[in-house]
């Protein structure tokens, strides 16, 4: 086979395709968000199914002596909802090419993310649910722990994009990275709302 290919023989007048920049980061983030949502939904589904099995046998849930408080989870919910608002602020700031505001909003989002993690860690210490107490206890910790991992991943993603923005990347004409991190952040907030209702509200 020679190196002559149909492509080499394209007539000069053939209109060539423009080399546009694809929005791969945004698409990739959407796909990752989809996969993360499926995995998390699976865990919550297993928890609810397992909980239903316990209730069907007439046993109490949570087990006697275990207190699942509501104050901290509510505070955590408000914290994350606020962080979604600051993330929207960051996105809007970049849309306006307003870098100072973007950095403030991204920094605030990161701070609220840290606050959420700290509150979760505190909640776990006061729940007094022994992992070995019941086969369902690891499920609760699996759901909460998975969400913490996702939150850390979202914060790392935001920190990376904020650093890039600090270095001069992204603008009103190139928002892909900021859109991507905002989408992932909103996904983690949405998943927490599911967790909050499934575990903390309905227990």
């Amino acid at each position: 086979m020679t190196d002559i290919t149909p492509f080499d023989a394209i007539p000069d007048q053939a209109p060539l395709a423009p080399r546009s920049k694809p929005r791969l980061l945004l698409i990739g983030t959407s796909l990752v968000s989809l996969a993360v949502t499926m995995g998390f939904a699976g865990l919550v589904g297993f928890y609810l199914s397992s909980r239903a099995d316990v209730l069907r046998t007439g046993e109490p849930w949570p087990p006697k002596g275990v207190e699942v408080p509501l104050t901290q989870p509510n505070m955590m919910m408000f914290t994350l909802v606020f962080s979604a608002a600051t993330m929207a602020w960051a996105l809007q700031a970049m849309r306006n090419d307003d870098r100072p505001n973007f950095h403030i909003a991204a920094g605030l989002s990161l701070f609220l993310g840290f606050a959420f993690l700290a509150q979760t860690a505190y909640l776990l210490t006061i729940m007094e649910l022994e992992v070995a107490a019941s086969p369902r206890a690891p499920l609760i910790y699996a759901v909460i722990g998975t969400h913490m991992v996702l939150q850390v991943a979202a914060m790392a993603y935001l920190a990376g994009m904020a650093l890039r923005a600090f270095g001069g990347e992204y603008s009103a004409k190139d928002l892909e990275g900021v859109y991507g991190v905002a989408m992932f952040w909103y996904t983690t907030v949405g998943l927490y709302l599911v967790l909050w209702y499934a575990i903390y509200i309905t227990k």
Binding site: A35, L43, P138, A142, T146
Partner: peptide, 25 residues
Amino acid sequence: LGGLFSLPLVVAQLVLAYLDVKHGF
């Protein structure tokens, strides 16, 4: 896309298997 829908459930089950075995259930 099918994998992105289906395989996370396998991961979720592996997480549960990990915890169940590790904690003696």
